[in-house]
Each structure stands twice: as structure tokens, then as C-alpha cells.
């Protein structure tokens, strides 16, 4: 296991639930509390999911049952797992789009429920997987919508809104298509425009659901580079669902592997990504090379995998 949980006095003082058993995929049992990295240094979590049980209102079935999920502060965390493992569902609950049946989500130590919808949108922005394509809106107008949580009902655009939008457009590198209508853009350009919108929201935490899926390789890199820049320049905490495990391994500071709605493993990519994980979680036979850099080379699907 790449990570260790141990009870923290801080947590006790706050009266949090203690001694809760963790049932991770590989039977690792720890107590709830703060997390440390492999060097024993405490990692601050921007976003914590505690004892989450998630299901959709339309069905009884519990989709995600996750004892504890940490999104470390000022780092890029990638959520990986096969289709239907519950990544998106988990992200929905982290962004308050889905009320958990049990458990809580805390952002910087405060319960999500204690925020109003607008307050939360100033702390946490989220880009969902499918964005209804709206043809007749210009990129700039779209990015201005990112300022919605900062504006009152009758407020006009302030100088600050203007600057935030400009920054977001610059960071996403889409100055040249500012006045173009969304309907005339390629999928990749559209995605960058949507990302610029959530950047304009100017939050400390950013959640992205498969932002690179369906994009050509050039735009995949553009998206990931934008996210990385945002993280490095402004210390924004990012949690991103990535489809491609090798991409995630190269890109993220931390990986969260999810299988069947449960947390399988958590930690820096070098420690999480193993041949065992690829077999257990993704059902593929693969070699993993650690030198000169982490590389995943998938070979074939495992015939007996239950996926």
C-alpha cells in the first residue's frame, strides 16, 4: 500500500468519527484520520469524502461505497478505474451534485452542506463529462458565465470579472477564438472553452470529469498542460477523472484507483501503478516500467477478469 492512515489528534478534537474500519480492495485496514505520504509527511487534504455510500434516486443499488477519499491540497489527483466503477458518481458527490446516502464530504474541513449553492461555486468548480453543446454562444460569453457565482442578480460585469475572464482565456490559450461561436469549433477547442469557463470561476478546487476523452492527442495535451499550469501557478487543487491509465500515471501527482465503487489504492503513481493493479482493476495484462520514467505497456485483456 502506498498510503497509511493513522488517527490524528486534530481529528479527534474536531469530534470526527474515529476508529472506522477501512475496507480497501486489498484488505488494508486502517483508522480514519489524516493521511501521510510515503515519507511520513502529512498531506493536507482539500477535499475529503468520509464514509460515502452513493446511489442514484432511480435505483436501490449502492454504486459507490468508499470509506475515505482524500484529494490532497495543491496537487493534481487523477481518479482512474474501468467504465462503470463509480468514478463519475464519486465526483458528483464531491461536487454536491449527488447527495450521499451516508457519509459526508468536507472541503477544507467544512461540510459541503454548510455552503449555499453559490458559496460552494466560489470554492469549487466542476466540469462534467458531457456539456450540452450550445451552438450560438461565443466563447467569450461562455467564459463570462464562469463569473456567475461572483455576481448578484442585478450586478453588472465588474473589473474583477473582466480580469478573471481574461486570465482564464489566456491560460487556456484560446485568445484567437474568443469571438467564435461554440458551434463552429472542433471538439478540442470546445473543451478548452469550457475549461476556460470553469477557470474564470476562480476557485481553489477544480474537479474535471474525463476532460480528455474524445479529444485528439494535441488537444489532450493542451487540456492537461492547462490544468498543470493552473496547479503550479495558483496552487489550485485538481481532481480529474482520466480514462487512460498511462496518461494518468505520467500526469498526476496522486492516483486514486477505484474498482466496483470501492477505493482500491491511493498514492503517488510510482507506488500505485503496478502490474497487479492493472490486472485487478482494469483486467489487463501489462508491463510497468519504472525507469527512466513510469510507463504502462498494456498487452492483452485478461480472459478471466470479471470486468
Amino acid at each position: 500500500m502506498a498510503h497509511q492512515y493513522h488517527s490524528a489528534t486534530e481529528e479527534q478534537e474536531r469530534g470526527q468519527e474515529q476508529g472506522q474500519k477501512h475496507g480497501n480492495g486489498d484488505g488494508h485496514e486502517t483508522e480514519a484520520g489524516q493521511i501521510t505520504d510515503s515519507n511520513g509527511v502529512t498531506v493536507e487534504s482539500a477535499l475529503v469524502g468520509d464514509g460515502l455510500e452513493l446511489s442514484y434516486p432511480t435505483s436501490e443499488e449502492t454504486i459507490v461505497d468508499c470509506a475515505r477519499l482524500d484529494i490532497p491540497e495543491a496537487a493534481v489527483t487523477a481518479l482512474v478505474g474501468p467504465n462503470g466503477s463509480g468514478k463519475s458518481t464519486l465526483l458528483k458527490s464531491l461536487s454536491n451534485h449527488l447527495d450521499p446516502d451516508a457519509g459526508t464530504v468536507r472541503i477544507h474541513g467544512e461540510d459541503l452542506d454548510s455552503f449555499s449553492q453559490k458559496e460552494l461555486a466560489r470554492e469549487l468548480s466542476v466540469l462534467s463529462q458531457e456539456n450540452d453543446s450550445l451552438g450560438s454562444i461565443t466563447v467569450e460569453d461562455l467564459v463570462y458565465h464562469g463569473r456567475y457565482p461572483h455576481r448578484g442578480f442585478f450586478d453588472s460585469v465588474s473589473e474583477e470579472d473582466h480580469r478573471a475572464v481574461e486570465r482564464a482565456i489566456e491560460l487556456a490559450g484560446i485568445e484567437h477564438i474568443c469571438d467564435t461561436e461554440l458551434g463552429q469549433l472542433s471538439g478540442g477547442q470546445k473543451q478548452l472553452a469550457w475549461i476556460a469557463m470553469v477557470l474564470a470561476q476562480d476557485t481553489d478546487v477544480l474537479l474535471l470529469d474525463e476532460p480528455t476523452t474524445f479529444l485528439d492527442i494535441h488537444h489532450q495535451f493542451r487540456v492537461l498542460e492547462t490544468i498543470r499550469q493552473l496547479n503550479e501557478q495558483k496552487g489550485v487543487t485538481v481532481a480529474v477523472i482520466l480514462h487512460d491509465i498511462s496518461q494518468a500515471a505520467r500526469f498526476a501527482d496522486y492516483l486514486v484507483a477505484i474498482r466496483d465503487g470501492e477505493l482500491y489504492d491511493w498514492g503517488p503513481p510510482e507506488e500505485v501503478v503496478t502490474e497487479q493493479l492493472l490486472a485487478d482493476v482494469f483486467g489487463v495484462e501489462a508491463t510497468v516500467e519504472y525507469e527512466p520514467e513510469l510507463q504502462v505497456l498494456p498487452k492483452q485483456a485478461l480472459p478471466n477478469s470479471r470486468l
Binding site: S95, H97, Q117, K118, E119, L120, A121, R122, S125, V126, L127, S128, N131, D132, L134, I137, D141, L142, H145, G146, Y148, P149, F153, V198, Q201
Partner: peptide
Amino acid sequence: QLNVLMLGETTARSLGMQ
């Protein structure tokens, strides 16, 4: 508000609209 609503329910909610 209508413009934001046109972005879709999920997006409108993410932007802090009730």
C-alpha cells in the same frame, strides 16, 4: 439567469444556480 440555464442543468448547478 436564462442564459446560464441554457448551458444545461448540471452546468448551471455547478455555477451555483439553484
